[in-house]
Write a protein that binds this DNA or RNA. Sequence first.
DNA 1: ACATTAAATTCGA
DNA 2: TCGAATTTAATGT
Length: 239
Amino acid sequence: MKPVATTAQALQRRARVPTPRELDDIPWLQTLDAQERAVAAADVRVVQVAAGELLCRVGRPATYWFGVIDGLLKMSNDTEMGVPITFTGVPPGGWFGEGTVIKREVYRYNIQALRKSVVAGLDVDTFHWLLERSIPFNHFITQQLNERLGQFIAAREIDRMTDADARVARSLAALFHPVLYPGVGTLLRITQQELGYLVGLSRQRVNEALRALQARDCIRIEYGGVRVIDIHALRGVPR
DNA sequence: ACATTAAATTCGA
DNA sequence: TCGAATTTAATGT
């Protein structure tokens, strides 16, 4: 997967107005009252990104609050020296970057599309407009920040786990988070290769882990995706 | 790495 | 626009 250089300007040029169907898939929009929803919906823009494309880069000023309509993104956090460390996936229904947008700072993550995806963006100014007047929106954001904090703590634990089955189980459980990623439902569309990129394992090893989890009746493997049978069992996979 | 199977796309009516 | 044929993608070993 080769990274494709993408400027914010190029993204803006390719952006279009969301379809009604796409608006329905934006969780926070549904919580707003009619007036505010109308204003916010009018400011949402949507763009297709190709696999490997970089949506935003560390250090660029935050101009949008992003959400995944369709596809799968990877949040990665570079360390000082060059390459590695700490990934989380962002499946459909996930919105991110609110911490950065609230403070009007620069992005602290690289966001890369793991596959061809549809991403929505809300202008920073509209975000602040909502934050200043809408209680439902504030509830949404508070909850979002709170749940994500829990996810980062979980991610640290996952990093330390050596057992591949357990890593896959916990990473999957994170992606099935009902509050952060309501768009996922019980079927997560992710290939074993993509899971491999996220967790840092080979496709073969991910395949093996998934089969073990399926044997435990935690999940069901489907073509191009994974269905959760028992999320609690998934979280509880030991070691 | 390879064989198998599923899905997406093309193409002809 | 239907469906068969072909190509591409994902899975399992």
